[in-house]
Nucleic acid binder design. Structure first.
Lengths: 339, 339
DNA sequence: GTTAGCACTCTCTCGTGTTGAGTGCTAAAA
DNA sequence: TTTTAGCACTCAACACGAGAGAGTGCTAAC
């Protein structure tokens, strides 16, 4: 592995590059960090680091910039975690916990905070439907052919739909169906709904059953798109790496493709804790000039969603990681408390 | 007013500038449009049009570009409406009307379509809460201290909230309260809710009443933000006027300020039909390099919302106006049909 | 192993022409 | 009186070249 001095040099270069976005030369390092050696020595180290793939050189008479491999080593072994001041932590917690927010609003607020803290785009994947547990099903007869269906799911989700039926139903009938449905569905998850169950429902409840099944299936497919969003996109335009508009457009377009974001955060949801995906490590080519830092959040002990940040590979990893972690923890606390 | 030839020249210049985004010279006009006069004559006309404020000259040896006043005259008196092909109209109607979409999804879909048709940012202001009429209020007791409140409002809105009460309520009690509330609220609008009514509710229903009032008030303030959104922001980056990133950032930031958008579309909602706001006519300085084309949409005969497009002042007004109008009509049809 | 010195490379900036599009003006033609 | 051809003039945009400056790699001495 890298010896102590190489690590120091690499870290100094990455710290400096993160700060200035300019290629870093040997003199700068010698001047700013007191390594006790001359620029020439540092040059030798830098040449080695380039040889082994941790650094790159835009052109022969420029300084070095970190490669993806360099950043990877940095986040795994070199960086020192950023400590938010007591003040900042309190402010964040206050903004999220104090206000009387609905869960959806809280997630939006978290996104706003995260994007503000990191000057990057924040991504939030709201609790995914298929892990939700049916808690209560309620049919209310508003008119003879107009029925309001309310699904209460755990955690913290309520879905409604107004449906129109062909034949008329009496309030008593509806109330019966409501009870029977409740018995059938209570306690199972969206994901556990099977074809057999759908058929049973259609068999048992006729027209209403069919509409209901459609509703549920549709809900599964449709609402996925709505449960992910990106906030603070304008931030990336202020980053020097996106001075070239073409690149920015590519990112913006990617951000509007919900399915892509969904997959990206979806995979992150499988492992817990803070995940970092750097540049080319990302499967999606549009994102390969960016890094993504994500963290899962919880209701009680269940992972229900993911939130994170998208920024240039030259992002302030220590700060971003801390911010993502802090916000995820606070959101978990909030959601669990209100459960 | 302007004589016939001046109008022809002005129109030719604006058409050309909309297409190419380049200042238009007298030769170009003479060549492309057969006005039967020489460039020199056109030059004289152009000088007059500049004098009277319809045109501007970026610098002395460049062609002319339209001023805001020029665009205003163009949209009011010169442009010929764009006709979408039968095919296009059918496709749009199909995408919106055929699919089994919830109203919210339909509005999102409309936004996507609009942004695609116009290569601009589309804005959608969803039905504003305070005009909604209470249709049904439903309280369901999920646990002794956990009550699900469902408000069904006309048109096409359902709101839910899970509330926790300090003391326990029996299902019968809840059912009573539910009935009494329904009697009280049915048929009135959010806007008609008065302080007296709030006090009555708190008096009649104690703790639940208070929570309910909080809920309604909070709902009014909170959900405003959620009922407006912008789609297709990446489109503006492809416009040559935003080659300069600074300008683009200003627009992006404005687009993230929901309140600003809300006010902007809110004023447009007061008049019916297609509204056009050009450049400096806009009250909000961040938007003064843009034009906004909006149209109200309906449920039955009631204006319930506004949708539109934001783009550079050099937008293709004939096409944008037609697109906004078409989509607004189709959305109205859709919402009215499903009412 | 470290470092000073030096030749070398390459980007960036600045000034200088040069080109070309487009104008306004004048005087002649219609 | 209106239109037009002709012409001088202006100015952005582009290309070119010189020079500065930052930074490197190599070599030889410490």
């Amino acid at each position: 592995m890298l010896d102590e001095r190489k690590r120091l040099v690499l870290r100094a270069i990455i710290d400096s590059y993160i700060e200035t976005a300019e290629p870093v030369g040997s003199r700068t390092i010698a001047r700013k960090h007191d390594l006790g050696v001359s620029p020439a020595t540092i040059r030798n180290e830098m040449a080695d680091l380039e040889e082994t793939g941790y650094l790159e050189q835009p052109h022969v008479s420029a300084g070095r910039i970190p490669s993806d491999k360099g950043y990877r080593f940095y986040v795994d072994a070199l960086m020192e975690p950023h400590r938010f001041s007591q003040n900042e932590v309190e402010r964040i917690e206050k903004e999220l916990l104090d206000a009387q927010l609905t869960p959806e609003r809280a997630l939006h607020e978290a996104a706003r905070l995260l994007s503000m803290l990191t000057d990057s785009v924040s991504l939030v994947l709201a609790p995914s439907t298929d892990q939700l547990v049916f808690k209560h099903v309620q049919l209310v007869c508003l008119e003879p052919t107009g029925i309001l269906v309310t699904l209460v799911l755990h955690p913290m989700t309520v879905k409604n739909r107004l449906i129109r039926t062909k034949r008329e139903y009496s309030p008593e009938e509806i109330s019966e169906i409501s009870k029977a449905l409740n018995k059938k569905l209570k306690g199972i998850t969206y994901r556990q709904l099977s074809v057999t169950m759908f058929n049973e429902i259609i068999g048992d409840f006729g027209e209403i059953g069919r509409v209901l099944v459609e509703l549920v299936l549709q809900g599964l497919a449709e609402e996925k798109e709505e449960q992910i969003y990106a906030t603070g996109a304008s931030n990336i335009l202020t980053q020097p790496e996106f001075r070239d508009v073409q690149r920015a457009v590519a990112i913006f377009e990617a951000l509007e493709q919900k399915e892509l974001l969904l997959k990206m955060l979806g995979t992150a949801a499988k492992s817990s804790g803070v995940q970092i995906v750097i540049g080319q490590e990302n499967t999606y080519s549009a994102m390969q000039s960016c890094s993504v830092v994500t963290c899962t959040y919880y209701v009680g002990n269940d992972v229900v969603g993911t939130l994170g940040v998208l920024g240039p590979t030259r992002m302030d990893y220590p700060k971003v990681v801390s911010a993502v972690n802090l916000v995820a923890q606070t959101v978990s606390l909030l959601l669990t408390r209100d459960k």
